[in-house]
Design a protein around this nucleic acid. Structure first.
Lengths: 109, 109
DNA sequence: TGACTGTATCGAAGGTTGTCGATACAGTCC
DNA sequence: GGACTGTATCGACAACCTTCGATACAGTCA
């Protein structure tokens, strides 16, 4: 039985791993990043990076572009939009109408 | 080796399961919900619901309040805020061409 | 106190995930 | 073509997760 068929859960699971979250954050910082660069930043072996990139690709988070020997990965704007729409649907604190105010982190123990 | 120590990953993992996402969505719709009600909506056995509620509690997503025999669960606003801040850090909803410009804070009249 | 209800915990089974070494595949350069 | 580099896939292992029946615990009511 597949663990997750729900697309929202898939999207969240894609980002829910520390290594993949690090990859996503790298992609936020830099527009397009060569696969070889993740091996350095994430401190895991090359097959592991490749695996996580595949997971991200299948979850819809990233797109790929081949340039010679290198393969460049980029965040897919529609995935980010879906993630932010999901986040907005949780919207107790930041309903779309008030989206311009900063999210205030309540000091809760 | 623990799978996840990163708090952001923990938060995402908390929501990344279909059953838990359904629980969270129930909590968005209704303010405070009795544990017994999740058993009905999620189509899983009572121990499973209890387990997922525990995961959500440990990830910081929900708080509990006892009322007699029943235990009521509620979404924690700070968790929602953290989730939305994470989502916001993934970039703006603006199209990719403008994604690199600064957050637009309109100097409203 | 004893019966009853609601919830958490325990223990186990089965599936999934993260990881890496070895290896195969794809493209470049000589 | 042949050597070389970058990336994906394979196979295996250990850890983890989801699930549920059985059971224990907590609170209420008669």
């Amino acid at each position: 039985m597949p663990r997750t068929t729900d697309p929202d859960s898939r999207l969240l699971q894609g980002a829910a791993d520390p290594t993949r979250l690090a990859i996503i954050r790298q992609l936020i910082a830099g527009d397009e990043i060569c696969a070889c660069d993740f091996t350095a930043c994430c401190e895991v072996a090359q097959p592991t990076v490749s695996h996580h990139l595949k997971v991200l690709r299948e979850a819809g988070w990233v797109s790929t572009r081949r340039v010679g020997l290198n393969i460049y990965y980029a965040l897919r704007p529609d995935a980010v939009a879906r993630f932010q729409a999901l986040s907005a649907s949780f919207g107790l604190l930041a309903p779309p109408a008030a989206a311009r105010s900063l999210p205030v982190v309540q000091p809760v123990g």
